[in-house]
């Protein structure tokens, strides 16, 4: 009777160990998988910054519908994206097509007039030189060392386009960072705006130019239907003459002080625009995405879990074997 209870207990422990073994193996599998997935850096095909979500056909066409479109000031038609306007009908891809003969564009593409964005792209928000208004001299501002500069009276607009060249709705998050470096707390009178051709100005307005630092922290989540594009324009300016604040003379004096400080110190402004896009099969919001390409932030965590679960796995296997040995020993004694 006593022997049968002991056997039942051993059997119970053994079953528990088996369950723990399976759980630990699953945990090990998951954690190693996640850790490795973090370490796998996405290698875009031909340096394109998109990820293949579907198999592309030989020709991918980007279409802009005039039926749903609105006409811009220069007469170019832009899309009225049904993904951004849920009540509207689906795209009618008929009027404007941008051919992609090599079929390499699939997914979401961000580009400007010069290039397609990659993971980290140097874009031309600022310039090395700026033309003079009068034409004499040719340049009103020209960097001595060939790096980007800005000065009173300079301004620039930077336009980039988000294109959905897949055959699925895409969701993306656009964020902007803007910050100064080496200014030691000094304010620089640069103003900035951000315009989305779907919503209009999202920072500033047609007449209002907020401080450029108001761009910092801007984030928007947006949908883009298959075959549609959306233009963004980020423009900035440093007014040549400012009548606000302390008045023109004081403002001129302040600008001059900044120009003199700039002789010895690079008082710089950085603007970073990030776009993270995901194909959402169900058309819902962006899902939490722990394993992100090139995101090393949680690799250590997943690796640590993998190591711990591996150790625990060894302990369970060791316990399993010990239990087995005990049983063998007992069986031997009983036979003896």
């Amino acid at each position: 009777m006593r022997e049968s209870r002991a056997r039942r207990m051993r059997k119970g422990v053994r079953s528990g160990l088996v369950v723990a073994l399976i759980l630990l193996i699953m945990l090990e599998l998951c954690s190693v998988t996640l850790a490795v997935s973090h370490l796998v850096t996405f290698s875009p095909v031909q340096n394109r910054n998109f990820i293949s979500l579907t198999e592309s056909s030989k020709m991918t066409k980007l279409m802009v519908s005039s039926a749903n479109g609105s006409e811009t000031a220069d007469g170019e038609e832009t899309s009225s994206d049904p993904a951004a306007n849920p009540g509207s009908s689906a795209a009618a891809p008929s009027d404007k097509e941008i051919d992609d003969p090599d079929g390499s564009h699939t997914g979401l593409v961000v580009e400007d007039k010069d290039q397609i964005w990659t993971t980290v792209t140097d874009v031309d928000i600022f310039s090395i030189r700026y033309d003079s208004e009068a034409g004499h001299p040719t340049f009103a501002v020209n960097s001595e060392k060939g790096d980007n500069v800005f000065a009173p009276g300079t301004e620039q607009a930077y336009t980039f386009t988000v294109k959905n060249v897949s055959d699925h709705n895409m969701k993306y998050i656009l964020t902007v960072d803007a910050y100064y470096e080496n200014t030691d707390g000094l304010w620089i009178p640069i103003e900035g705006r951000l315009k989305n051709d779907d919503k209009g100005y999202v920072i500033g307005s047609e007449t209002e130019w907020p401080d450029v630092l108001e761009l910092d922290g801007y984030a928007e989540t947006n949908n883009l239907s298959a075959g549609y594009i959306r233009d963004y324009t980020l423009d900035w300016r440093w007014p040549f003459e400012r009548f606000d604040g302390e008045g023109l003379d004081s403002n001129d004096a302040y600008d001059t002080m900044l120009g003199n400080l700039a002789v010895d110190e690079d008082l710089s402004l950085h603007i970073i625009i990030r776009i993270v896009a995901e194909w959402d099969e169900e058309g819902g919001g962006i899902k939490p995405i722990p394993p992100q390409t090139g995101d090393y932030s949680k690799t250590f965590l997943w690796g640590a879990i993998a190591v711990v679960s591996l150790c625990a796995l060894d302990i369970v296997i060791w316990a399993f074997r010990r239990d087995d040995d005990d049983e063998k020993e007992k069986n031997g004694l009983a036979k003896g």
Binding site: S37, T41, I125, V141, E144, G259
Partner: peptide, 17 residues
């Protein structure tokens, strides 16, 4: 790794001397 696209465009400039 194939479910997320992450791109960024950045630029910087300094005050002209």
């Amino acid at each position: 790794a194939k479910y997320v696209t992450r791109v960024s465009g950045e630029d910087a400039a300094r005050v002209a001397k």
